[in-house]
């Protein structure tokens, strides 16, 4: 199969043309957010100008020097990281159980798990609010407005997703490897640690990353089930929408700042994401 120079050039041209176009479409909204974050409120209106006219960093400094913002940021980091770790561990155990043990009705359990992610959030906020403020109560302490409350709650939509994702990965690990390790005297933990975790590492990594991102980005529950102490950064975004004018500049600046951590994680873990997202496509 020889391809002429012309064909190759044409193909290269198409490839790059396509990707440059895709990149522009992908980046335009983010670029616009960045441009807005560099504008003062009075500059925002009028003929839209897509170029960056100047570096107006006040939006960023205002946000960054605000102690509430710092608290929101810390909360977000703590909540999403703990949630991701918790989800990784629990999902690994649960998926292993579903994959290797003959549990009564496990297909049905598997399906029921994912229905947890389907619930429309609005109506479910009310019972959750009551649970958070009244049911789980120790003296003055309640789950409401605590980081732990959010960490546990986010499991409801992250765990099913993680288990669905890991199921294919763990099913793809030949059961003979477990057996071999057991014959060598490894217990359950030994098998998990030395067989499953290393082989499922990409899958686990992508589970963790996506759980982290989902938790980091979650808004409705965080907005309704926290008050001052445990608010996360996404709820802070909504504060800029006010009666006397939305502060779009600061909102955009804050959006940019919330994007940075997840972007870094994704860039670092690019490789694993693709390796881990197979949903059991590797059958052999």
């Amino acid at each position: 199969m020889t391809i002429s120079f012309r064909q190759r050039a044409w193909r290269l041209f198409v490839t790059y043309g396509f990707w440059i176009f895709t990149t522009i479409v992908t980046l335009l909204p983010i670029w616009w957010m960045f441009v807005v974050s560099m504008r003062s409120r009075v500059e925002l209106f009028g003929r839209p100008n897509l170029s960056l006219s100047r570096f107006f960093v006040e939006n960023y400094t205002n946000v960054l020097t605000d102690s509430t913002f710092q608290r929101y940021m810390t909360n977000s980091v703590v909540v999403s990281t703990s949630n991701a770790l918790l989800v990784m561990v629990l999902a690994l155990l649960a998926t292993y159980a579903l994959s290797r043990y003959k549990l009564t009705g496990r297909d049905n359990i598997f399906f029921w798990l994912i229905t947890n992610r389907m619930a429309p959030p609005a109506a479910f906020l009310l019972p959750l609010y009551i649970m958070f403020t009244r049911t789980f109560r120790l003296g003055d302490w309640t789950l409401y407005d605590t980081q732990i409350g959010l960490i546990l709650l986010y499991c409801v939509f992250n765990l099913p997703f993680a288990i669905w994702l890991l199921k294919g990965v763990i099913d793809g690990i030949p059961i003979e490897l477990d057996d071999a390790a057991m014959i060598d005297g490894a217990g359950l933990w030994g098998v998990l640690r030395h067989v499953i975790v290393p082989l499922a590492a990409p899958g686990l990594a992508v589970t963790g990353i996506l759980s982290w991102v989902f938790a980091w980005n979650e808004y409705l529950f965080a907005a309704n089930l926290t008050s001052v102490q445990a608010r996360t950064i996404t709820t802070g975004l909504a504060e800029f929408v006010t009666v006397t004018g939305t502060n779009w500049g600061e909102l955009a600046a804050m959006s940019m700042l919330t994007l940075i951590p997840s972007a870094i994680i994704v860039i670092l873990a690019q490789r694993y994401i693709v390796m881990g997202l197979t949903f059991g496509a590797v059958k052999e």
Binding site: L126, V228, T235, A238, V243
Partner: peptide, 17 residues
């Protein structure tokens, strides 16, 4: 005094809840 400032819609639902 701890002050929670939030958006207009949120303020209502939180107070009413």
């Amino acid at each position: 005094v701890e002050f929670e400032t939030t958006s207009w819609d949120q303020m209502y639902s939180k107070a009413i809840n």
